[in-house]
Computed example of a mutant assay.
Amino acid sequence: MFVAAQVDDSLRLRVAALKLVVPDHAIVVDRTAAWIHEVDALPRSAIHRMPSLDVVSSLASRVRRPGIDSGIRNFTAADLMVLDGLRVTTPLRTACDLGRLLWRFDALAAIDGFLRAGLDHAELLAEIDRYKGFRGVVQLRTLAPLGDRKAESPPESALRLHWYDADIGTPETQIWVYDDAGRPKYRIDVGDPEVHYGGEYFGAEFHGEDAEEHDEARIAWLERERVWKIDVFTNDDVYGRELEAADRLRRGFLMAQASRGLRRTAYVDLAR
């Protein structure tokens, strides 16, 4: 389905598009269900290539149509909702399925996205035992408690998981740093306010060449005026083949921890 560029995106439009290709007996699941629920869980390749639709059947045979990634799956009535005739897994079921089935960095991002969209964290945690014996339940059991609705994008969620992998404690997200008048000035994506160490994800969409000067000034202010140590991470650090972010976070954290006393003394001197 193609629409004019000036047509506003909406739930109604997304449902109408899927109804053109999804059979009546089928159920929209996983990444496509997240898209319906306005949670960003599409693969990163979606910016270049149309992703397959995630559609399953509760009947004996899968859906066999081009562009559809299908299978057979069992559901309870509580797992499903109907939107203008289209059957879709609920936000709770979709979050559990993506938390089980996606690559762990994408899985945590999906969980964060659903929490940000209003899913109750306690309800998600209470649901986990139901999936005992399901594929990926160990991953879901590990990641669901780490969910954080304050994470603002999938790469930030992935960076936070690298922080846990670095074994440097529990990070905070979206940490406000204040100016001398007590006004919130800048936010740090993920960090430890006690150690004054933080990690920032710089994606091409919001941190390209046009924003380079502002980004450099922001990092310089945080390090000079508030004596934070900030490391910057890119797409390759977070998602690349080497997955170097955890190692960099650990090194940066330990360096910041070791120099904490000296930096605090410097901060007091600056404040005088």
Rank of each mutant, 00 (worst) to 15 (best):
E223N: 08
E225W: 06
P51V: 04
R62G: 12
R226I: 08
R116P: 01
A211V: 08
A151V: 13
A107V: 03
F75P: 10
F253W: 15
A151I: 04
R218F: 04
L98G: 08
M255P: 00
K150C: 09
F253H: 13
L125M: 14
T76Y: 07
P154R: 07
R12H: 11
V56D: 01
I111V: 15
A17C: 10
I72M: 10
T234S: 12
L92Y: 04
G118F: 05
I36H: 02
L83R: 09
V29A: 01
Y131L: 13
F233K: 07
F206Y: 12
S45H: 06
L108F: 09
A41C: 14
H196K: 15
I168C: 04
Y197I: 02
A34P: 04
E244N: 12
R62E: 14
V55A: 00
D24L: 08
L270K: 12
M1S: 14
A204G: 04
A144S: 13
G71Q: 04
P155K: 02
L125F: 03
A217C: 02
D84L: 06
R218W: 02
L249V: 00
E127S: 15
R248N: 01
I27V: 15
R248C: 03
T265C: 06
R62K: 15
L222H: 01
D9R: 14
Q174T: 07
R87K: 14
T90W: 09
T32Y: 01
I27S: 07
D30F: 08
V82I: 13
D210V: 13
V28M: 06
T234H: 11
A266T: 11
L243D: 07
A126D: 15
I72A: 02
L11Y: 05
D192F: 09
E213Y: 07
R160P: 03
G261E: 12
R14M: 09
L119V: 09
F206I: 00
A33G: 04
V22R: 03
D148S: 06
T265Q: 15
R130K: 09
L254C: 05
R141D: 07
L86E: 02
R263Y: 06
P66M: 01
D231H: 12
V22D: 00
